[in-house]
């Protein structure tokens, strides 16, 4: 589950984890990749790691840590907006 992290001056960030995207894609494959813009229901949620804040602590989270639980993943345009 969430792992607490020490506060530093850098702005940590996360990203997809798991299979590395193939960097040797042909231009045709790259075009296909850009067209695929939405994930599909009934398929695996792409795993990711991300830093965050929860109840007074800075944490690191991986989506796959939550296997076995229901997850609501919500994106929003920015802090200080509504949900």
């Amino acid at each position: 589950m969430p792992e607490e992290v020490a506060v530093g001056c850098a702005r940590p960030t996360g990203g997809p984890v798991g299979e590395e995207p193939d960097s040797t894609l042909t231009s045709e494959q790259k075009t296909r990749k850009e067209v695929r813009s939405m994930i599909k229901v009934g398929q695996k949620a792409p795993d990711f790691a991300a830093p965050g804040y929860q109840k007074g602590k800075f944490i690191n989270i991986k989506l796959s840590d939550y296997l076995g639980k229901w997850v609501l993943l919500c994106f929003y345009p920015g802090d200080f907006t509504f949900v």
Binding site: I39, K40, V41, G42, Q43, K44, A45, D47, L63, S64, Y66, L67, G68, K69, W70, V71, L72, L73, C74, F75, Y76, P77, G78, V83
Partner: peptide
Amino acid sequence: GVEARGRFIIDPDGIVQGY
């Protein structure tokens, strides 16, 4: 440079059931 209001329901097997 921002994210849309996306909401994903992910089941205990890690499968996206809806968004």
